[in-house]
Design a protein around this nucleic acid. Structure first.
Lengths: 192, 192, 192, 192
DNA sequence: CATGAATGAGCCTTCATTCAT
DNA sequence: AATGAATGAAGGCTCATTCAT
């Protein structure tokens, strides 16, 4: 289940699956579509994954690990100000959501399609990611730069960013850096 | 297609469908499930709707009209301050999202399942709804109470609220009024 | 589950299934073959049966009820001698095994293919049938006409008859009455 | 194809296959199950057997040769009385049916799964075995110890014994010697 | 309006078999 | 010999939709 233990072939197939899942949704993506995109026959898919569910699980696990890792590194590299740290998180979130792998969007929008078992298995990963946000926002709140309930602000911020999957065009005129700035400006008290 | 022209029976069936679509998603809700919940046989469903797509279209049209109507009335009733008007919109949004009809959530999360034809037909309704938000936020921006790009703030606000469908429990300790307040506090400059 | 409650259509389909199951075995009979023989499409089959297992269960239940009913009536009609009663049972067994319905053979040779649940459900029927045999043989033993353990003799007799499914040709020169006589002669002490 | 020419490795694999075929039936035993039980991968199996059919053929040939050889030796060792000779045959039959190799049962119950070609190839072996029985029973009939048609009695006897595969528990209180005695008592006129 | 039976296209999955390494 | 990846045909089953009654 660990990304580190996944064979390169499996990782490769996982990324292809992520793209299709994001484009059409898990339910509408047939294993034949997946196999076609992977350049193999549908039966061969089951050498790498036990069933279709496991592909979804692999996509979500992979993408969540990737987002978590990227966020941690971005925080480590960021200047120690509230704005800088929030900006780092927002940029990572948007970048993982809109990069060519699309996998983060699958994690968000197909979460309910996971089997109960897989969902439980992945919950701690997702929680770890959200905790990163919560901590930074909680710091900001204590510093007086953010007002209200930190947990709700966190969810509002993530919701605002997640919804960009529905309207933001990465090939359009605006880049993710600008989007991230807008978010931070919205959350953090302006004059500070 | 117009709500006004829908027979009471069809409206009743539409509401039942909305609940199932929200609980399990459009793709996972079979025509037989719908018929069961409606107390009829699956064949009979097609006396009321031409096909499954039309049911989704009816649900989304109904819910969007409802949200639009509610929002307009709330704005008409609201005090003429930025905060009051925004608060009114946020409450309506949350209430239509979490009431027992669930239909607004279907409009948001199953939008992509509409046929191209239906989507086009419903786009003006949705745009009308979003325009309501955009106008209020644009007013606020001109009044200096909101900073940044009004269009983006609008989408961020809606995204933040839409995402509550994923985590907010209407039966929990917090009510939608508090949630709405948190949102307005987040968007509108505090000291004003 | 009761034969009496089966729709005529379902009974008709059950008989066709019995023939195919006997000819090729349950595992080698595909639902498409069944549907072809029934003159319908494979999907339509599942309006009458929940799954393939249920077809097998229906065949076995139907045939065992039929054999049980026939055996009881034959015993009621038989003269009250050991030989006559045994002969009656043997003829019914052979006739139900080799008639055009073939269903009894399915009950015998596909018993292990039943799901655990179905098997349990049908065991009491089969036991009722075997008990009929056991009682007659036990009577014979007490009358000194049969020697040895009644339970084993019963199973040997049934095994001998069941095996005819593998070699006896109903269209050949010998009829089931002669076969039945041979069995009774083998079991019952000759001079009596 | 001849046992004598089979490599020890192939014989070993054949025995493992026999166990699985008996436990679950030929059709339900997959090549992967066989390979797992053999401690190799499924692809490797085809270095030892051309296809799955050949495995079944090998199992049946092996077991039938074994039964034939055992029966001949038992007859050679038996006292020259009808009862003793029949008893010897019955014991060998039961022992080969219920020993840890299970292979004889496969020969009986999966005979129809053989390809036409293989079946023809093995028929002479099976006939040789049945002829052994037929000869002894024919002797008994001529000696007045068995009544009726020798061919039918032979088949009835074999059927009775074969059916033990369905109900006899080798680990239970009764041993095969007792079972064999019951059979002989059933067939052979008692007092004579 | 309602129903039960039927349809046909398609879905996920299985499995014996092949073959380059 | 052995393996792992791939194949292709088939299998059981689902489901939106139709239609005679």
């Amino acid at each position: 289940m660990n990304v580190a233990t996944d064979s390169p072939r499996r990782q490769q197939l996982t990324r292809i699956a992520a793209r299709l899942f994001m484009q059409q949704g898990f339910d509408r993506t047939t294993v034949r579509m997946l196999a076609d995109a992977m350049g193999i026959k549908s039966g061969s898919l089951f050498h790498h994954f036990a069933d279709k569910q496991e592909i979804l699980c692999a996509v979500i696990e992979d993408s969540t690990r990737h987002a978590l890792f990227s966020a941690r590194r971005a925080l480590a590299d960021a200047a120690p100000t509230t704005r800088a740290r929030l900006l780092a998180l927002a940029r990572v979130h948007l970048d993982t959501l809109h990069d060519d792998r699309h996998a983060h969007g699958v994690a968000l929008y197909e979460w309910r399609r996971l089997s109960d078992e897989d969902r439980e298995h992945l919950t701690h990963l997702r929680d770890a990611y959200e905790t990163l946000w919560l901590q930074v926002i909680e710091e900001a709140r204590r510093a007086g730069q953010v007002q209200g309930d930190a947990a709700i602000i966190t969810r509002y911020a993530l919701g605002a960013l997640n919804w960009t999957a529905r309207w933001y065009d990465p090939d359009g005129p605006m880049d993710t850096a600008q989007l991230a700035h807008e978010l931070v400006d919205m959350i953090v008290a302006p004059a500070s």
